[in-house]
Design a protein around this nucleic acid. Structure first.
Length: 341
DNA sequence: CCGTGTGTTGAT
DNA sequence: TCAACACACGGG
């Protein structure tokens, strides 16, 4: 079940910026009175040592931290930054959430609290694919909202119901007609948060209803992972150009698009005629050589051009691999690295 | 008012 | 990376 996911661990930087929500639905916890209040000091009967009761009990689980109200928080560190995974009533629940995140962020070999669920081959596959099929941000969001189990179950349910094909290989069956491609410019991936669509292509494939010319319309595009991207599409009189605006920068960020990369606009040939969007690293500069550009914090460190014929590095809707970042992780000072190179 | 989750620090 | 700790912030 190779499915469409290529990139080993996939994904890069994503924004995990859920609103500072409160405990979300779930069952209201019958909280123990625990030290929400006073600054009492308790005497430990065994050794007569003073123990401050305010001190929170540490968890035996990795990635789990105590909360002042007796609940447990889960967190994982990625690229020197903490990613908050939510708060939970049970220590174990928090630990499990950490495990899931660890697998998503660090792959199947991640060190986790409960080895159990990551050994099986068959049963586990469903979860592996599920993890593959969702972005890190989505997984984190599910964990924080305590909806992971539910969504996983639903996903499995869907797959189980469809006996017609293999597991998740509908992406293989789904054929797409390429409408056009664009080599993105620096400004397409810059701070302008817009992608200019060549006029000819725009008018040919994305005609704007005359009424909407000014306000623009929202268009959904599905990427190779099945994720749907919604962009505002409109015409800018000032520059007399068609552009994708709102939502575009998210795509650039998640896919880590760089100037020179190619964005592909496709349309499903199926009955749904779903619009799709794909991307590849650099265009076939010259026919075939594969170009491996190693970038560190946006700086091209080196640039290997192999003799291998296989054309463009297709990102498969996944995300640009980040070997370099893996390396970078080990160093604390960005500039130190750059200078060192 | 209360809990979450961030800011921060020090240790591994 | 990681957990401990303090507490600012935001929801109710």
């Amino acid at each position: 079940m190779v499915s469409s996911c290529t990139d080993e661990s996939s994904s890069t930087s994503e924004s995990f910026s859920p609103p500072t929500a409160t405990a979300t639905k779930f069952s209201a916890p019958p909280l123990p009175p625990s030290g929400s209040g006073g600054s009492n000091v308790v005497l430990d009967s065994k050794n007569g040592v003073e123990t401050d009761s305010r001190k929170l009990p540490s968890s035996k689980y990795k990635g789990v931290v105590p909360q002042p109200n007796g609940r447990w928080g889960a967190q994982i560190y990625v690229k020197h930054q903490r990613v908050w995974l939510g708060t939970f009533n049970d220590e174990e629940e928090a630990a499990h959430s950490y495990d899931i995140a660890a697998r998503k962020f660090r792959g199947r070999d991640a060190v986790v609290n409960f080895k159990t669920f990551l050994t099986a081959e068959e049963d586990d596959n469903g979860e592996l694919c599920f993890l593959e099929a969702h972005s890190k941000a989505e997984i984190v969001d599910m964990l924080r909202k305590h909806t992971y189990a539910e969504e996983l179950a639903q996903s499995n349910k869907r797959n189980g119901a469809n006996t017609n094909t293999t597991t998740q290989n509908d992406t293989v069956l789904r054929t797409r007609e390429v409408l056009f491609e664009k080599v993105v410019t620096p400004s397409d991936v810059g701070k302008l948060n817009r992608l200019v669509i060549p006029k000819h292509q725009a008018e040919k494939h994305f005609p704007l209803p005359s009424l909407s010319v000014n306000k623009g319309v929202l268009i959904n595009f599905e990427d190779a992972t099945g994720k749907v991207w919604r962009f505002r599409y409109s015409y800018w009189n000032s520059s007399q150009s068609y552009v994708l605006t709102k939502g575009w920068s998210r795509f650039v960020k998640e896919k880590n698009l760089r100037a020179g990369d190619v964005v592909t606009f496709e349309r499903s040939t199926g009955s749904d005629r779903q619009l799709c969007i794909g991307w590849k690293i650099r265009s076939g500069l010259s026919k075939n050589p594969v170009q491996v550009v190693v970038r560190l914090f946006g700086v091209d460190i080196f640039n290997v051009t192999s003799a291998k014929p296989s054309n463009v590095v297709d990102a498969c809707g996944g995300k640009r691999s980040r070997e370099v970042d893996m390396f970078a992780l080990r160093c604390s000072k960005k500039h130190a690295i750059i200078n060192a190179l």
